[in-house]
Nucleic acid binder design. Structure first.
Lengths: 229, 229
DNA sequence: CGCGTAATTGAATCAGTTCAATGTCAGTGG
DNA sequence: CCACTGACATTGAACTGATTCAATTACGCG
């Protein structure tokens, strides 16, 4: 049964098991793997599929004419990427870790073959994406660098944290430049923000990509705009 | 016939004519008027309807815990507002001019009564909204105030400009604070940017809310990131 | 071990904010 | 008709925080 794939923002490991792969028709999802750095699609590409992430992290970005880049979002397991506009992809999309995906034909076939579960799933994914993008605005609209960075870590803490002893750890798949382009800052400023957060004992950096959240409460207070936290 | 309402980003004046209003069932749209300053919904409200704008301008915004406000978008005739996430509205929405709307029940009834035209319309609206939000990121991610302001005017030029002699004019329904909260700037900086654009003879301000675009080419060059334009 | 990439740190500069003052306009009432 | 009011926009000056550019350090990989 396909319903495992259709759950909102849930990984789908169980959906790519052999039984599933065998009885495949046009509208069945196709599993796919991406290596680190491999692009999934580019801005302007005709969109044939949307993809649900099973494992790994992807980066969606738009390029400016002058070479500057805006990272639109990072997509994690359960997320849907590739929702097009006017039949074309609107961003660059690249794997920043090894990834496993399910490719769903989009738009679904017309008429009788149209699967209402899939319709609901895709509408739900689109609506969730809208909310996420709105959330993102709060991150980059007129806030101090330290607040933005704290909010970013808090975001990852909610989405992809793993336990480590009495603390929780966030493994950053993205580098400082990716984070900077996501937050509307420079890599240097992001780095300084991390240093400051470390200085305040709100987090510890094992290495540059491994963030141990020491004080999630203070992190969230900072993220909400209280600089003195 | 209802198809006039379902066209992508088009005003629907013809759809609220009497003939339409008479044969109304549960899934038919309901016309609605809003006065200046009147809220349509608030963040967190249970979403019963989505709305298509026929006339007027609406402002969608999110409030921060610390009182700061992020304007998410301005919605113009043809636009759809009120797409919910998890059954609830995700922003504040308020009329900043007199408005006429069509309210569509959302989500559509389940099962047989589900209208595929409406489904497509809503999905299309959602996808277009995603693209617009992505576009908005390019406006506020690490750009100079003058570039942001130029890009904002260029945006309005494409969407709601009216001819005036040999030039085109943009009537700003929103005040400087709204623009500032949209662009991630202060009202003062927005004002200074307008002054600078006027000084460069790229635009003229009839009054503070009436922008005459004198040099659209240079406006767009500036908007694309060339400060010297 | 050494190379290359990425992250961090430092110092000077610059752009935007802040706060205060002034200006402008529409609406109201004398 | 014109003075007054209040809301909004503009301008000015000092300040502050992010950027820029350069130098240094840390780290993964052959």
């Amino acid at each position: 049964m396909q319903s495992a794939v259709l759950k909102r923002a849930q990984p789908f490991d169980e959906a790519i098991e052999p039984r599933q792969a065998r009885r495949r028709s046009l509208s069945d999802p196709v599993p796919r793997r991406l290596r680190l750095g491999q692009p999934l699609f580019h801005e302007g590409d005709r969109a044939q599929h949307v993809y649900q992430i099973g494992r790994g992290v992807m980066r969606l970005a738009r390029m400016q004419t002058d070479g500057r880049r805006q990272v639109i979002s990072f997509a994690f397991p359960g997320d849907v990427v590739g929702l097009p506009d006017n039949g074309r992809h609107t961003t660059e999309c690249e794997a920043i870790t090894e990834c496993e995906l399910l490719a769903h034909r989009f738009p679904g076939l017309a008429g009788a073959d149209r699967n209402p579960d899939m319709q609901n799933f895709l509408m739900d994914a689109a609506l969730q994406e809208i909310r996420r993008l709105q959330d993102h605005f709060l991150l980059i609209g007129r806030r101090l660098a330290l607040e933005r960075t704290a909010a970013f870590v808090a975001l990852l803490l909610d989405r992809i944290a793993e336990p480590l002893g009495r603390y929780r750890v966030v493994r950053l798949a993205m580098n400082r430049t990716d984070i900077a382009d996501y937050l509307g800052l420079t890599p240097e400023t992001v780095s300084r923000s991390f240093t400051e957060l470390r200085g305040r004992r709100i987090l510890a950096l094992d290495d540059a990509n491994t963030v141990v959240v020491l004080d999630p409460a203070r992190l969230r207070i900072l993220a909400a705009g209280a600089m003195e936290a």
